[in-house]
Nucleic acid binder design. Structure first.
Lengths: 192, 192
DNA sequence: ATCATTTATTGAACTTGTTCAATGTTTTGA
DNA sequence: TCAAAACATTGAACAAGTTCAATAAATGAT
């Protein structure tokens, strides 16, 4: 169902019923079972997706074979590799469902169609990109300024919901530390 | 002079002469001498700025008193704390000129006026935010996946121009390492 | 219910990066 | 132009985080 997308849109801009319907019809639902991939490294990202159910991780595999999580996306979050999608270059990222998930996808062509025919859509994506940029900026500051212990505590506080749904393996890959070290951090915290 | 702003705009969208002039007139030039501040922590960021001359650093002071550089902005780059500017919350950032600089500033009110009166301005800032987001995403991936040595080499390759204009102190604060350690990296590289 | 797989914990040795203090070099401003 | 300030380098001791290997606990598929 597209009600969650509609809610998201109306929270940010106002559209007429026809505009709303026209825009929403540009999205196609895709079901992605746990552990399946929406995209793999090397592919050009062909979509921008709005998660309606489940949870995804967007990650990179570095030259030592370690998986580094760029971000997680749960219900009402967007997923894409904005670099690959925008510039039509091969992605360095994998997007994988961590639970049985559903996502609404829009293609670049249809998104451009929307930009041209419903001017307010520019505003929607301007605001959306701005919000994700703010979140990433905050994470960058935290990664530069804080110790792993503190980043872990911050994560729990900021995303209690994700914390419940993720394994320590995934959280460590997001924090940028080994899962063994996360385990030691957890012990240290628990002993207080 | 506002020619560099005009060039920037026309590289991304097309505007009529009146629109272009109207929009550019919303910007006020400000001269900032070396070491002076455009903004300090605790203030609400009241502007979005386009650098026409010189070089700025946008940085955070962490709880240990260390300065961490979020980004540098030279000619034709934008500077703001997008979080503080958008949400009108106190900033955690300092913005300081590293050279005698000139910047064109637009206020939130005038920017909103432009959004409402020149729809294409939405597109301009959507594209601009997208580009800065892509750059930040890449930096995040690199920070998670690469060693300090490699990040330093990447920096030199990616921003040879900034490398020339910045001290090692500033580069270290951007790479997220101490300047002493950067010095050791430099020695190691030089000895090869 | 059970076996296989994935996830979590732990310790020891190691690597990367920090801290501090001292010294040398470059830049800047009066 | 020269003194002061800012920047850069170095070494030694230290702290944060990794790696590897072994084991325990939890989860999942049949």
């Amino acid at each position: 169902m597209k009600t969650s997308l509609i809610n998201y849109i109306l929270k940010h801009i106002t559209l007429s019923t026809e505009e709303l319907e026209g825009f929403c019809n540009l999205f196609n639902q895709k079901d992605v079972k746990k552990k399946y991939f929406l995209m793999r490294e090397g592919e050009v990202c062909k979509f921008e997706g709005f998660v309606t159910k489940g949870l995804f991780r967007v990650y990179h595999i570095d030259s030592n074979g370690f998986e580094q999580v760029l971000y997680f996306a749960q219900e009402n979050w967007w997923i894409t590799d904005i670099d690959s999608f925008t510039n039509e270059t091969p992605s360095q990222l994998y997007i994988q469902a961590l639970e049985d998930s559903e996502v609404l996808l829009i293609s670049k062509k249809d998104k451009e169609f929307a930009y041209n025919n419903i001017p307010k859509i520019e505003k929607l994506f301007r605001i959306m990109t701005q919000k994700t940029h703010i979140a990433l900026q905050q994470r960058m500051i935290d990664n530069l300024s804080k110790t792993a212990d503190q980043r872990y505590l911050d994560f729990i506080e900021k995303y209690p919901n994700l914390f419940q749904r993720l394994t320590n393996l995934q959280i460590a890959a997001y924090l940028g530390i080994s899962h063994e070290f996360l385990s030691k951090i957890r012990r240290k915290i628990a002993s207080k």
